[in-house]
Design a protein around this nucleic acid. Structure first.
Lengths: 284, 284
DNA sequence: TCAATAGTGTCTCTAAGACAGTATGTG
DNA sequence: CACATACTGTCTTAGAGACACTATTGA
C-alpha cells in the first residue's frame, strides 16, 4: 500500500479551488473501508441479550459477530447507516425503529482487525424494548438474541477501548474480529448511561411499573437494589417517570398488590442521578 | 449488509477462506476516505485556547480548521494517527506528547461534509499543558493557539453531535467543514469529563496549587467557584491530588500567603465527583 | 393463612454550599 | 496599613442507604 497520501502542496498555489476539485482523484488514496457495527441490547425475560449474526462468509465464517456492514459511500451518514443495518438484521420496520435508542459508541481502527484490509468500524449502541426474533439478513447464516452472560468477553490480545490493537484469531465461544472488545465497551457505556439519563426506560414498553424499571437496573448493573429506596428515588427525580393513573391488572405472580403504571417523562438527564452503589475498586 | 459492496455470497460455498482472501479486491468498494481531526485544548494565561491551522489548500483554503489528516491505511490505528497529526501540527516531540491526554471524541460522516468526496472523520480530544507556539505542518499556511471565546460556535445548519449533516459554505469567522460542531462537542465533553475524572490536572504542569486547579475548572465551566469550598472538596477526594511538601516561592501578585504545591494523584475517577453547580436548564 | 410485593416513614451519615474567621503574604 | 489570598471551622440542607412498617394481592 502507498505510504503517503498524495500531497497537492507542490502545485497548490497554481490551482484555484474549482480546478483542484476537478483534478482530485480519491482513488489515489490507499484504500480504507468503513463499516458500522451495532451493539443492540434488549431484555428478554429479565435477562440482557445482544443481537448477533452468524457470519455466512469469510473471514470468521461460522462465527458470531455484531450485525453491521459497509457504509454506503456518498449516500448516507453514519447514524443512517447504523439504523439501516439494525433494521436489515432485525427485520424491524422504520416505525418500530423509532422506539429504539441509537447512539454512537466509538470507532475501532486497528489495521489488523480485519484480515482483508484496513477496515475502520464505527460502533453504535442500541437500547431496544423486547423485539421480535430477528430474521437473518442477506449475508448472515443466522441472527439471534443471545444472552450476554453466555458470551466470552475476555478480550485477550484485543485490549478494550477505541483505537485499535493487534489481530488475533478467533477463540472458541468468542466473537469475530474485535467485537468482544466492542461489546465490552458497549456494556460499560450502558452501565454508565443509565446513571445519568432515563435511558433504562428504552428497554421497557410504553407502560411499566417501578419494579420493571428496577429489574432493568439490576440486570445491567448486575446487582440487587433495595426496592424501597429505589422506588422513592425514582419518583423523586423530576421528569424521569410520569404516572398514568392506571395499575397492573393483577398482582405479581407470587402475590402482592397491583403496581402503579408509569411512562417515560420528559427529562433528558436525571437530577439527582441514580448512582451505582460502591465502586471503589474502579477508581484507580 | 451492503448492497453496493462486492458480494461473494453467490460463490462463497466454493471458496475457502484462503482463496477468498486472495481474490478480494478492496478497490471494488465505493471510495471513502478517513481522517482524524484533533481538538487540542490548552490554557494560556488562564484562557482556554484551541489549536487551529489555516488551510493552505482547497477546500476551505484560507479558513481556520482543526488539525488533522488522512489515516495512513494499513500502517496505523486511530489513536496513533491522532497522536501523529497532533505532533506534526504542533512540532511537539514524542516525549512531550506523553504529557498530553488524548481520547477519542466521536466520528462524523455526513456525505456532504467535505466537497471532495465522502470523508469520515474520527475526532479526538486532547488536553495539554501550556505548549510552545505551534509551527505549521506541511499542508497548513499557519498554526496557532486560538482563544475559544473568539470563535463563532453557532454551528448553523451543522447541528452538533456525531452522525453527520448537511454541508454548508463557510461563514466569516467560522471554521472549515463541520469543525465548529466538532469543537462544540469537544467542549461539552471536556466540561463533563473534569467532573468525574482528574483530567483538569492535564492542563497544568507537574506542580500546581489548588488555586491553579480552580482556575482550570472556572475557565472550562465558565463560572466562578467558591474558593474555600473548592479547596476542601479537592482535598477530600482520595487520589485526586497529592501534596509535595513544597509551596510557591512567593505569594500571589496581589498578596496572600504562599500556597502549597500538589501534583496529580493516582485516582482515575473522582469519588465523590466535583459536580457542576446547578444546571437545571440542561435537564430537558 | 402465609408469603411476596408495593409503597411509605424514619433515622443516620455523607457531602455540598453558605458564611465566617484566621494567618500570611504584596503593594 | 490596606487588601487579597490560603486555608479552616461551622451551620444548614439535600440526598443516599439501612431498616421498619402497612396494605394488598396470589397461592
Amino acid at each position: 500500500m502507498p505510504t503517503q497520501s498524495p500531497r497537492p502542496e507542490s502545485n497548490q498555489e497554481q490551482l484555484d479551488e474549482q480546478a483542484w476539485l476537478a483534478a482530485y482523484d480519491p482513488r489515489a488514496f490507499a484504500p480504507v473501508a468503513v463499516t458500522v457495527d451495532v451493539v443492540a441490547l434488549t431484555l428478554r425475560q429479565d435477562e440482557l441479550h445482544v443481537l448477533l449474526v452468524e457470519r455466512a462468509a469469510p473471514p470468521y465464517r461460522g462465527c458470531w459477530a455484531l450485525p453491521g456492514g459497509f457504509v454506503r459511500a456518498g449516500q448516507e451518514d453514519l447514524d443512517q447507516a447504523a439504523a439501516r443495518e439494525l433494521a436489515e438484521e432485525t427485520g424491524v420496520d422504520t416505525a418500530a425503529l423509532r422506539r429504539v435508542h441509537l447512539e454512537q459508541l466509538g470507532s475501532y481502527g486497528s489495521p489488523q482487525r480485519d484480515p482483508r484490509m484496513h477496515v475502520i468500524s464505527v460502533a453504535y449502541l442500541a437500547f431496544a424494548p423486547d423485539l421480535p426474533a430477528p430474521r437473518p439478513g442477506t449475508d448472515a447464516a443466522a441472527a439471534a438474541w443471545v444472552p450476554v452472560s453466555s458470551l466470552d468477553l475476555a478480550v485477550g490480545p484485543h485490549r478494550g477501548g477505541p483505537g485499535g490493537h493487534t489481530h488475533h484469531p478467533v477463540r472458541p465461544g468468542g466473537l469475530a474480529f474485535d467485537h468482544a472488545a466492542i461489546l465490552a465497551a458497549a456494556l460499560d457505556r450502558a452501565r454508565a448511561k443509565i446513571e445519568y439519563t432515563p435511558l433504562a426506560t428504552a428497554f421497557l414498553g410504553g407502560e411499566f411499573t417501578i419494579s420493571d424499571l428496577r429489574a432493568v437496573y439490576e440486570e445491567i448493573w448486575g446487582e440487587k437494589l433495595h426496592p424501597g429506596n429505589f422506588h422513592r428515588k425514582v419518583l423523586s427525580v423530576p421528569g424521569f417517570v410520569e404516572g398514568t393513573g392506571r395499575t397492573t391488572a393483577h398482582g405479581g405472580s407470587r402475590g402482592g398488590p397491583r403496581a402503579r403504571l408509569y411512562h417515560r417523562g420528559d427529562a433528558r438527564l436525571l437530577h439527582p442521578a441514580l448512582l451505582r452503589p460502591d465502586r471503589e475498586e474502579e477508581i484507580r
